[in-house]
């Protein structure tokens, strides 16, 4: 067993896990954060995308111990009790998801993009989503929602705390 401590959605969390535990399993099984999904488990589908120290990664391809001391943001860390994050709000407004399995990963990829590029081109959005596979709704409405939320976030009217 190895003890790991990291910041998860702003709070310090500690767990004792076998070294072969992936970050995804730590989040889902130990911290009960089931927003990040177990999809392909080999880095292709992006359903397990979380943001580690500002960068989107596949939680299935990172050992939990590798996140020691780092800051992890999962989909659970985006909304507040009262309000969705502007990206989530835009996805809801535009009906950008259908089954929703890819949603947490897609939204976190979008968040990481907009944190770096507040006014991305369509091509930049497509590039940012190329590691997130959606098999039902398609990408058109996601891209529209990301453009819409980018506008809201640039306006500074919405919550930018996260």
């Amino acid at each position: 067993m190895t003890q790991v401590t990291m910041i998860v959605n702003g709070d310090s969390r500690t767990a004792s896990v076998p070294p072969e535990t992936t970050l995804l399993m730590l989040l889902r099984e130990h911290f009960n954060l089931t927003g990040a999904k177990l999809g392909c488990d080999v880095g292709d589908c992006g359903a397990c995308t979380v943001i580690v120290d500002g960068k989107p990664v596949n939680a299935c391809l990172m050992l939990a111990v590798q996140a020691e001391g780092r800051s992890v943001l999962t989909i659970e860390g985006l909304a507040t009790q009262n309000e969705l994050h502007p990206i989530q709000k835009a996805f809801e407004d535009q009906a950008s998801l259908q089954c929703g399995f890819c949603g947490p990963g897609v939204i976190l990829s979008a968040k990481a993009l907009l944190d770096n590029i507040p006014d991305p081109s369509k091509q930049e959005i497509r590039d940012a989503l190329s590691g997130n596979l959606c098999r039902c709704t398609g990408y058109t409405k996601m891209i529209e929602a990301i453009q819409e939320s980018a506008r809201v976030l640039r306006g500074g009217s919405a919550d930018q705390a996260v």
């Binding site: 880095g43 995308t49 989107p56 990664v57 596949n58 391809l61 990481a112 590039d127 590691g131 997130n132």
Partner: peptide, 9 residues
């Protein structure tokens, strides 16, 4: 190479 997530790791 791959996609953003893979390139970050």
């Amino acid at each position: 190479i791959g996609a953003v997530q893979t390139r970050n790791l």
